[in-house]
């Protein structure tokens, strides 16, 4: 459905993305993961045709985005990271304008508002300039969902939504996914990625470092789940006991023992610590953040590269 081949984009001296190649299959939900400035938004902008790549080619259903822009863009709808609209227009006028551009049926606005549960009850005639960030994001999502197209490209779609709005939109996307839409989105929120995506592309420094299934990502994240234990007495024998019981890493951090392991191994480790004579006074779990994941990912890929050089 979306074919990205060897795409690079420079802004002056800065290489925003470099040699990105990716195939996104019809009906697939693909998440772009990466820290700020890693190239996710630039990649999406190139796919939509807002930024022209310095090298490479992008095709949507066979149409080259830069040679056949109209045909390619007819197949997609895009939500930018910060959707903006002229402040003096009302919500209804904005929806009407984009509806006209996309030749949607007259009742489509109400239909999409009901489907996303983003109704602006009684507020449709309010000027955009008076909306909060969250409401503006809802309007952006509503506009992006107006055309009934096979491809949705969403740049950080849930970034400004309140928890209720995020749940509603996640449900809507799940329904879109069931209907066979191809969805590409970037996100910093792991739960969104885990619940929605089939595959993820990990961006590091403008390069697509890895493409993996969500199951593989989940496994990688699980391996980094941590326990922080307050035990008595705290000594080095407990570190060995935890490692022998299946911990990936165990260390003493101040007055606590910090153990990294998969969630499945936690019970075994706790039992091993008790057998080793530890009295467990308190214990908390720390789920890995995306930042932890990146750091581990970067460390592991650097180590793999160094080992490769040595061999």
């Amino acid at each position: 459905m979306i074919s990205i081949t060897g795409v690079s984009k420079r802004f002056g001296d800065v290489e925003a993305i470099s040699d990105v190649s990716l195939e996104i299959r019809p009906g697939e939900t693909f998440a772009l993961l990466g820290p700020n400035g890693s190239g996710k938004s630039t990649t999406l902008k190139c796919v939509v045709g807002l930024s022209a790549p310095n090298a490479g080619q992008i095709r949507i259903n066979g149409y080259d985005v830069y040679k056949r822009p109209r045909e390619a863009r007819r197949l997609l709808s895009y939500l930018p990271q910060r959707a903006g609209f002229p402040e003096s227009l009302t919500i209804r006028e904005v929806a009407d304008f984009y509806g006209r551009l996309r030749l949607t049926a007259p009742g489509r606005y109400s239909e999409v508002a009901a489907s996303t549960r983003f109704e602006f009850n009684g507020l449709s005639d309010r000027p955009v300039g008076t909306l909060s960030g969250g409401m503006l994001q809802r309007l952006g999502l509503l506009v992006a969902c107006l055309p009934d197209v096979p491809v949705l490209i969403l740049d950080e779609p849930m970034i400004n939504l309140d928890p209720e709005g995020a749940v509603r939109f996640r449900d809507f996307l799940l329904r879109m996914k069931e209907q066979g839409k191809t969805i590409v989105f970037s996100s910093h929120i792991l739960t969104d990625v885990e619940q929605l995506a089939d595959r993820v592309g990990i961006f590091v420094g403008g390069r697509l470092a890895s493409v993996q299934s969500v199951d593989a990502l989940r496994e990688a994240l699980n391996r980094q789940a941590r326990m922080r234990l307050t035990v008595s007495p705290l000594d080095c024998r407990l570190v060995d006991a935890a490692l022998q019981a299946g911990a990936r890493e165990a260390r003493v951090d101040g007055q606590a023992l910090v153990v990294t392991s998969s969630p499945e191994a936690r019970l075994l480790i706790l039992k091993a610590l008790q057998t080793a004579g530890a009295d467990i006074l308190q214990f908390t779990t720390e789920e890995p953040s995306l930042e932890d994941f990146y750091m581990t990912y970067l460390r592991e890929s650097r180590m793999a590269k160094e080992n490769g050089h040595e061999n």
Binding site: K45, R70, R74, Y78, R82, A83, L101, V143
Partner: peptide
């Protein structure tokens, strides 16, 4: 020379 965020939405539509 209106805001960039306004432009992104319009320029991503199937119009030249």
């Amino acid at each position: 020379t209106s805001d960039k965020s306004t432009g992104e939405m319009v320029f991503s539509q199937p119009i030249t």
